[in-house]
Simulated assay, not measured.
Amino acid sequence: MLQGQKRWLYIAVPIFFFWFFGQIDKVGISVIQTDPGFLSDLGLTGPDKNAKIGLISFIFMISYSCSNIFWGVIIDKLGARKTAVLGLLVWTATMVMGGLSTSYEMFLISRVILGIGEGMMIPISGKFISNWFHKRELGRAQSFWITGNYLGPAVGTVMLILIISTFHWQAAFFVLAAFNLFINIPMFLFLTRNTPEEHPRLSKEEVSYIRQKDEANDAEQKQFFAKDYRYWIVWFGNLMSSFLFFGISIWLPTYLVEAKGFEREAMTGITSLSWLFALGFVLAGGFLADKTKRPSLLATIFSY
Rank of each mutant, 00 (worst) to 15 (best):
Ala80Trp: 07
Arg81Gln: 13
Tyr104Leu: 11
Gly115Phe: 12
Leu88Lys: 06
Ala178Arg: 08
Ser110Thr: 04
Asn68Phe: 12
Tyr150Asp: 06
Val85Asp: 03
Ser130Cys: 10
Glu137Trp: 15
Ser63Met: 02
Ile109Val: 08
Ala141Asp: 09
Ala171Lys: 11
Phe173Thr: 09
Ser101Gln: 10
Met95Phe: 14
Ser143Asp: 00
Lys82Ile: 02
Thr94Trp: 01
Glu105Gln: 03
Val155Phe: 12
Ile113Lys: 10
Tyr104Ser: 03
Arg140Val: 07
Tyr104Ile: 04
Val158Ile: 15
Arg140Tyr: 05
Ala154Lys: 09
Met106Ser: 14
Ile161Gly: 02
Val73Cys: 08
Ser125Phe: 02
Ala84Ile: 06
Pro153Arg: 02
Lys135Thr: 14
Pro153Asp: 01
Glu105Val: 06
Asn131Arg: 10
Tyr64Glu: 08
Trp132Phe: 15
Phe179Asn: 02
Val112Gln: 02
Arg140Gly: 06
Lys77Ile: 15
Leu78Thr: 03
Ile164Thr: 05
Leu176Thr: 08
Ala178Gln: 09
Ile113Trp: 00
Trp91Cys: 03
Phe70His: 08
Ile109Pro: 00
Lys127His: 10
Ala93Met: 02
Leu78His: 03
Leu176His: 05
His168Thr: 07
Leu114Asp: 08
Gln142His: 14
Gly99Gln: 13
Asn68Cys: 05
Ser165Pro: 04
Ser143Pro: 07
Gly148Ile: 03
Ser63Pro: 09
Arg136Asp: 11
Lys127Gln: 05
Ile124Glu: 03
Lys127Arg: 11
Thr166Gln: 09
Val90Trp: 10
Arg111Cys: 00
Gly72Val: 01
Met97Asn: 13
Phe70Lys: 02
Ser67Leu: 04
Tyr104Arg: 01
Leu100Gln: 10
Ala177Gln: 11
Ile116Tyr: 00
Val85Arg: 09
Leu114Ala: 01
Met95Pro: 03
Phe70Ser: 03
Arg140Ser: 05
Ala80Glu: 07
Trp71Met: 07
